[in-house]
């Protein structure tokens, strides 16, 4: 932190990678006003508007719900719309793209891997036959909603993948958010797709890779607790395996 005139300032060391111009990433340092109400995203917007229009990053809602603006701040994955500059001052902030993903440009990572994995777990209501709309809604008590509600809060910000050491070492791991999303549907009383998803999640890339480090739940801005989802899934999966061996006639339809 330094003082230029009356307005205090803070330095951002920003990761730059422009594949058309440079083979290796570099860091640019920008000095921005240190305002109480500013989050890192406000500082990036200030840089783009006033200092260097070529800085690229994703953002939209700036209220913690669209999931676009996840980045590393001093090595920790954060939503930059919820990370206040003042909590880093004094001292500078190193802003980098989310760890564990290929970088497309500056602070923009490639989302391809996650999008494929999200697709793979079939995140929709699987049912033999949907009842006609005229028969109205499926009944679901508040307790039944609470069963899966927490896992439905994921905003796909990918902070959990950045925090996950397993994903860092083994990118084939299907990962925290995708497993939590699978659990969101498995635990929904309207869904009958658990077996289908089990086939996907019990593979080598699935739940068994997780060694329960728990970092994913630590960084989750929505308290989704993917680690809890994975742990619970392992128990279900083991029970179902034993049941299918010992009591094959009890398998869920």
């Amino acid at each position: 932190m330094s003082n230029s005139g009356l307005q205090p300032t803070i330095d951002l060391e920003v990761y730059r990678y422009r594949p058309e111009q440079q083979a290796e990433p570099t860091y640019d340092t920008f000095t921005v006003p240190l305002r109480d109400e500013w989050v890192i995203l406000d500082a990036l917007n200030y840089i783009k508007d006033e200092l260097d229009g070529s800085l690229s990053y994703r953002w939209s809602c700036r209220m913690g719900v669209c999931g676009s603006c996840g980045m590393m701040a001093n090595g920790e994955p954060v939503l930059t719309c919820a990370a206040f500059l003042k909590s880093y001052a004094p001292g500078s902030i190193r802003v980098e793209p989310l760890a564990n993903f290929p970088v497309a440009r500056d602070l923009i990572i490639s989302m391809d891997d996650f999008m494929e994995k999200m697709n793979r777990i079939q995140p929709w209501i699987i049912t033999d036959e949907e009842k006609p709309l005229e028969e109205g809604e499926y009944l679901q008590t508040p307790d039944q909603v609470d069963e899966y509600k927490q896992f439905s809060m994921c905003i796909n910000c990918l902070l959990c993948y950045s925090a996950c050491p397993i994903y860092g070492m083994e990118p084939s791991f299907i990962g925290p958010a995708a497993i939590a999303l699978a659990q969101r549907y498995n635990l929904d009383s309207r869904d009958h797709g658990q077996e289908t998803r089990m086939d996907i999640l019990s593979t080598d890339d699935g739940i068994w890779q997780c060694t329960f480090v728990g970092e994913c739940s630590e960084v989750c801005p929505e308290n989704v607790d993917p680690a809890g989802a994975i742990q619970r899934y392992k128990v279900t999966s083991t029970n179902d395996w034993w049941k299918s061996k010992l009591l094959p006639w009890t398998s869920k339809q």
Binding site: W124, I125, L133, E134, T141, P142, Q144, Y148, R190, D191
Partner: peptide, 22 residues
């Protein structure tokens, strides 16, 4: 109403009454 029921069938976690209705 039908459109919102359709979204319910597609899994939208609508808040519920104690009896399970939306």
């Amino acid at each position: 109403p039908n459109e919102l029921v359709q979204l319910e069938h597609w899994g939208c976690p609508w808040s519920r009454e104690p009896d399970g209705k939306v």
